[in-house]
């Protein structure tokens, strides 16, 4: 009984508070500059200007270029970390060489420290290795930063695969590499999906490393472009900015909607330590 009252008195108003920012921001993205300046936030635009705002953001503010860049980085980060982490986890969990736990701890320590610990040496090192402001440099970094968490997930997943399967395959004369490729990888599709969803989203949403490792439009990731578009607010094109925010959110919204299950599994796995 009481719970139902709580739901209507508190949760429903909270839902409205949660929806308001999205709703009003979307409205701004549909307005032209005049409507934006003269109307109140709840009023519908007198002219639907969404397409022009998107064009402004995509072409003039170059979010189109950054969008493609970030797609590349996100796919590279997810795919690269899936390969590296699954290979390493296979060995850590199934081949169990001496010191495997220590090696895992080393890889896993990449999730422990704040990102601020990496910034200056990366910046300096990238300049010396000519990786600064290159797509290759960005991809290499994103693969690296995605690998520790991916290893955690694959390790947890591989240890649920029964040992008998592997023993049987070995008796049949399969090499370890073949067991990994033909047995563990196909079985680990759910784990790969969790890693892909999580790490693509992480790379897509990253601002900090894009800020310090790139400086030109050719390599800039989307979040840096979006933040800088806001920084150039002197132009005060709020509708264009909001259209940009919509563009920048589409891939992650689509991923989440399509693969919500894996997203929630990933969150739950983060807590699996308990």
């Amino acid at each position: 009984m009481k719970r139902r009252i709580l739901v209507y008195l508190v949760v429903v108003p909270l839902c409205l508070v949660w929806l308001l920012p999205v709703w009003t921001s979307l409205l701004v993205a549909f307005k032209n500059l005049d409507d934006y300046a003269s109307q109140s936030f709840w009023q519908l635009p007198s002219q639907w200007n969404f397409v022009d705002n998107v064009k402004y953001a995509w072409n003039k503010a170059k979010l189109g270029t950054y969008f493609i860049n970030s797609l590349l980085y996100g796919v590279a980060g997810a795919a690269g970390s899936i390969i590296l982490a699954s290979l390493a986890s296979f060995s850590i969990v199934r081949l169990r060489p001496k010191g495997a736990n220590l090696l895992f701890a080393l890889i896993f320590s990449g999730t422990v420290f704040p990102f601020q610990m990496y910034l200056v040496p990366l910046y300096k090192g990238y300049q010396e290795l000519n990786l600064y402001d290159t797509k290759l440099g960005m991809m290499l970094f994103y693969i690296s930063i995605c690998t520790p968490f991916a290893t955690l997930i694959f390790r947890a997943f591989f240890s649920t695969i029964p040992n008998e399967l592997m023993e049987a395959a070995r008796l049949d004369g399969c090499s370890d590499l073949r067991i990994y490729l033909q047995m563990f990888m196909p079985l680990s599709l759910p784990a790969a999906a969790v890693v892909a969803v999580f790490q693509f989203t992480w790379v897509w949403n990253d601002l900090l490393f894009g800020l310090i490792l790139t400086c030109s439009a050719d390599t800039r990731p989307i979040m840096v472009g979006l933040a800088q578009l806001q920084g150039a607010r002197a132009a005060a094109n709020m509708p264009g900015l909001m259209a940009g925010a919509v563009i920048a959110s589409i891939p992650t919204i689509a991923l989440f909607t399509a693969l919500r299950r894996y997203f929630i599994q990933g969150l739950a796995l983060q807590t699996a330590g308990e």
């Binding site: 850590i92 040496p121 990366l122 290499l140 690296s144």
Partner: peptide, 21 residues
């Protein structure tokens, strides 16, 4: 061989995260 499987992950994490740290 088991170490070779771990090496690539360790190399990336070591070079891009642990060494900078």
């Amino acid at each position: 061989a088991p170490y070779i499987y771990i090496l690539p992950a360790l190399f990336f994490v070591g070079a891009f995260l642990l060494a900078p740290m």
